[in-house]
């Protein structure tokens, strides 16, 4: 049997806070007289005040009869701490199950990091190292960096040696 809610009187916005204090008798005398004079000319505020007064009457008479919230048991704090401990332990157990996987993942990551550093070091050294003749090996070594003490084997080698000597002396 739900009742339809009736439209209520709306108090003037600028007087609502004052009316809230006024209905509880918590208004300063100056403000109370200001509210009194406003109420004489404002039907809406007057009606809103009457409704709030009726509600306050019901609360004043009825609230002492209502059941308050239950009181905590004397052992509530102890039981709460026990629950907290048990939940914390369970959380610890849950993390304990994953612990070996976590350790493995960290070790794997560390090894990968070291390998990466080593590879990068090699790459950087290889890129910036001066390409000296000593670094060359095989048949090209003789062509680009012939041993100066060696006797040329044929006419081509003689020509190369002459050209290199000229280039070194700036006689291009």
């Amino acid at each position: 049997m739900e009742m339809e809610i009736q439209p209520r009187a709306l108090a003037c916005r600028e007087y609502e806070t004052l009316l809230a204090d006024y209905v509880l008798g918590e208004c300063a005398p100056v403000e109370a007289s200001r509210v009194d004079s406003h109420l004489r000319g404002c039907r809406n505020c007057h009606a809103a005040l009457e409704e709030a007064r009726a509600g306050s009457n019901w609360l004043r008479v009825g609230v002492p009869l209502l059941d308050k919230s239950p009181e905590p048991r004397p052992e509530f704090a102890r039981l709460t701490m026990a629950r907290i401990r048990s939940e914390a332990e369970q959380a610890g157990d849950r993390s304990g199950f994953w612990q070996p996987f976590v350790v493995f993942a960290w070790r794997f990551a560390a090894t990968a990091m070291v390998a990466l550093v080593i590879l990068l070091t090699y790459a950087v050294r290889g890129h910036y190292a001066p390409r000296t003749a000593a670094g060359l090996q095989g048949p090209l070594a003789d062509v680009f960096a012939p041993d100066p003490t060696r006797v040329p084997a044929n006419q081509d080698e003689i020509l190369i040696m002459v050209a290199e000597t000229d280039h070194a002396n700036g006689n291009d």
């Binding site: 009742m3 339809e4 809610i5 009736q6 209520r8 009187a9 108090a11 609502e16 806070t17 009316l19 809230a20 204090d21 209905v23 809103a48 409704e51 709030a52 009726a54 509600g55 306050s56 019901w58 609360l59």
Partner: peptide, 22 residues
């Protein structure tokens, strides 16, 4: 604080809402 006061004032006014017609 004023908002709480106003809401309480309106709530007090609404207590009898369901029974006003009656």
């Amino acid at each position: 604080v004023n908002t709480v006061k106003v809401r309480l004032f309106r709530a007090r006014g609404r207590i009898l809402d369901g029974y006003r017609r009656r």
